[in-house]
Design a protein around this nucleic acid. Structure first.
Lengths: 245, 245
DNA sequence: CGGTCCTTTGACACAGGTCAAGTAATGTGG
DNA sequence: CCACATTACTTGACCTGTGTCAAAGGACCG
């Protein structure tokens, strides 16, 4: 995985756990203690690569939490539901992201692929056993978890106090920054999810998402190349809107 | 847009790091690998007990993240702010909870005591050094972080999809459950924070908080013993409301 | 006993939700 | 290649839950 190769999304982040240094770079982690060859091979020994197709659950809220995953290609949504059908998407995951880590017996959320997706699956018991033996693995997990926690708090701020416009703009910038971090282009932001998923992520309805995007377009802040491709016409102005100025 | 407050993180338990087994029990963690006497004394060697008084910041968003804390007595709010003063409390912390863990150079949120509060302070560098030497310490942290993450997702669901009534009821039950976990009585729920903090936590205004509590009272679901003391008159009904039935 | 802070309550406004219709893109079977 | 269905997105008209603004009551305090 040389830094000089063109970043093809599929490879640059596979084996998140097995290739932590790459992950660190990609995610701006402050420190990085890569696994050595022997540790990596022990980790690899318990992983299986699996595929997930859109609209099929990877696991559902309440399912026994027997496996843990890292995403190596594609995109995934994780969400919680209320009995009457209201949904809240708590996150969109991209290559390098982690899925299913918990200390409970069952998953607290459902996970579903947005596109054709490749995952590394780790049996939880065996991964936990490895954690005891490879401290650096645990360090990586802790780093990732505290990163997730910071992201969750940003999302809490977004949902608790931002307007629809601020939410949409924050969302576009998040996607853009995420793409850049993964070595892809950040400007025409590509949305692998539909309007309904965006609404369920931002705590809005489909209609509000659509209307708000239209208004951003007519204001000249963004350009809708097509439904799922957005050009950030005035990135500075967008940044200010997202930050709440 | 005057005052909003900040921050969420859920519940932790006293001397979390110094007394992990107690923590585990209190939090229903699935496994528990307590530190041995020697490990504990090494941890204790780097801790200082400090006090925090209400309305004085423990640290602020952007401050260098030099210390990590566990709360041993009192209550703390953590919050993020937008430039125009909007605030979102991302968590209320109680004895046993953890404060300030991050992999960034600076804190992503502010922390402020609600009541007279006692904290254990760990210099971050020395704690990180210990992590390398005491794997079980890191295991505890990971457990705590993944617990926080689950709580953050519940809060995301609350903010994204629940009504004001559902939010208030969920909040009361959270406080009640938290108190029980810490070995206190869960029924007259005591609110160490004011209405403004509740609003800033639930993504509502003071007025909506007040009105909604009044309505819950006139419906007979709760009883307001005083401003900060609430009796859960119909716990089953409340539970259903919180879950979104 | 006047001031300050917190909470409650009321009247009204508005952002975003709901309901409904229309348009466009894509697929499907004949 | 064309009807036709399906799905996703947009737009409009209207409604409602919550926010905003204002005022008043209570508790606490010097």
């Amino acid at each position: 995985m040389s830094r000089f190769t063109v970043a093809t999304q599929s490879n640059s982040h596979s084996f998140h756990l097995a290739d932590p240094c790459d992950t660190c770079r990609a995610r701006d982690f402050s420190a990085c203690a890569p696994l050595d060859a022997e540790e990596q091979s022990r980790l690899t020994a318990i992983t299986r690569t699996v595929q997930a197709t859109p609209h099929r659950a990877i696991f559902e809220e309440g399912d026994p939490a027997d496996n843990v995953y890292t995403l190596t290609a594609g995109a995934v949504k994780i969400y919680k539901s209320l009995p009457d059908g209201r949904r809240q998407i708590t996150g969109f995951l991209f290559p390098g992201d982690f899925l299913g880590l918990t200390h409970n017996e069952s998953h607290a959320y459902s996970a579903e692929a947005l596109t054709l997706t490749r995952l590394c699956r780790f049996p939880r018991r065996r991964l936990e056993a490895l954690l005891d033996e490879i401290p650096r693995l645990e360090q990586q997990l802790l780093r990732m978890a505290s990163h997730e926690l910071a992201a969750a708090q940003a999302q809490i701020m977004l949902l608790g106090r931002k307007s629809a416009r601020e939410r949409l703009v924050s969302f576009l910038l998040m996607l853009s920054n995420g793409a850049v971090r993964r070595g892809q282009r950040g400007d025409p932001v590509s949305l692998p999810m539909n309007r309904s998923d965006i609404g369920d992520y931002l705590g809005l309805t489909i209609e509000t998402v659509s209307r708000t995007l239209t208004k951003l377009k007519t204001t000249g802040l963004i350009e809708l190349l097509d439904d799922k491709q957005i050009h950030l016409a005035k990135p500075e102005a967008l940044r200010e809107i997202a930050e709440g100025f």
